[in-house]
């Protein structure tokens, strides 16, 4: 299928700021293909982000775009969606932005099941500030602030989202480029909070420090660790050691927040 990429971007704002080999561009193309597939009206769609490399993405998109403060994207997006429930709201951000400084907003947006699509690009590191460890940097790995190896356990973002109440949770990787757009498109069509975690690479600040000799090595790793949900059901615990499940991990129909609030308005008017 041919996609109209030009229609969705602000060509004048390119080139982007991302380093050679960064997976964010792959994810952005996936988002564009999803938007193209879903045919969302540009005027009626907002793309919201926080701070970090991934959060620069909205600036390149020809939509209503809101580049907020560090970690706050989901809360700004909640204000937009509550005010205009008819708008499509998409959030884009990184692992540190979404699950460290923005963790509280992230879990409560999931809990409310407010209708938005949150694409979280998990590159295991704070890239923009030069490679400090994030809640997703694997234990033992090196970052600029864990030169002796990271002592912290990690967040599994998708599990966190499911536990917090998101009603559509999916995961893929920057290697699985075509799956990115399919999952985002499915998330957009889902009524409620949709989290799409994209495992990504940061060759500049994570790869270098952790013995990935090239971007190709990082991409190979993403390919190797990914196990589709269906395949995983036939694998043993031993075989699944060190792997991550990809595909739609969770899906449920539950009342959506702005629809619930519309009922509050009806009750208040009738009172």
């Amino acid at each position: 299928m041919a996609y109209d990429y030009e229609k969705h971007i602000r060509a004048g704002k390119l080139p982007h700021i991302w380093c050679p080999g960064c997976g964010h561009g792959i994810a952005m193309k996936g988002l564009i293909r999803a938007l193209d597939t879903c045919g969302l009206e540009k005027n009626n769609t907002a793309i919201v982000s926080g701070i970090g490399c991934a959060s620069r993405l909205p600036g390149y998109m020809d939509y209503n775009t809101l580049h907020t403060a560090h970690g706050r994207a989901a809360a700004f997006a909640t204000g937009v969606k509550m005010s205009k429930p008819e708008m499509n709201v998409i959030v884009v951000g990184g692992d540190g932005d979404g699950t460290a400084i923005g963790g509280n907003h992230f879990i409560h947006a999931c809990r409310r099941n407010i209708d938005m699509t949150y694409v979280i690009l998990n590159n295991y590191i704070y890239g923009m500030t030069g490679g400090q460890f994030s809640p997703c940097t694997p234990t033992g790995h090196k970052a600029s602030t864990t030169v002796y190896g990271n002592p912290d356990p990690i967040f599994d973002i998708s599990k966190l989202a499911i536990g917090a109440g998101a009603t559509f949770v999916a995961r893929t990787t920057a290697f699985h480029a075509t799956q990115i757009d399919k999952l985002i498109a499915e998330g957009i069509k889902h009524k409620g909070m949709a989290i799409i975690e994209v495992l990504d690479d940061c060759p500049t600040t994570y790869g270098r420090r952790n013995k990935f000799r090239s971007v190709v090595d990082m991409m190979k790793r993403l390919k190797e660790i990914a196990v589709p949900v269906a395949a995983a059901s036939k694998m043993t615990a031993e075989q699944l050691e060190g792997k991550v499940l990809t595909g739609v991990l969770y899906k449920e129909d539950k009342p959506e927040y702005t629809e619930q609030y519309a009922q509050v308005i009806e009750r208040a008017k009738g009172a």
Partner: peptide, 29 residues
């Protein structure tokens, strides 16, 4: 607020409350 079709939201924290207010204002509220 809901009596006039307005919106009230109790956010998860003070920062989130301020964020929601700015988001709402940018939609013209």
């Amino acid at each position: 607020l809901p009596k006039i079709g307005g919106k009230f939201i109790q956010m998860e924290d003070e920062i989130g409350a301020m964020a929601s207010v700015i988001g709402a204002s940018l939609t013209g509220q």
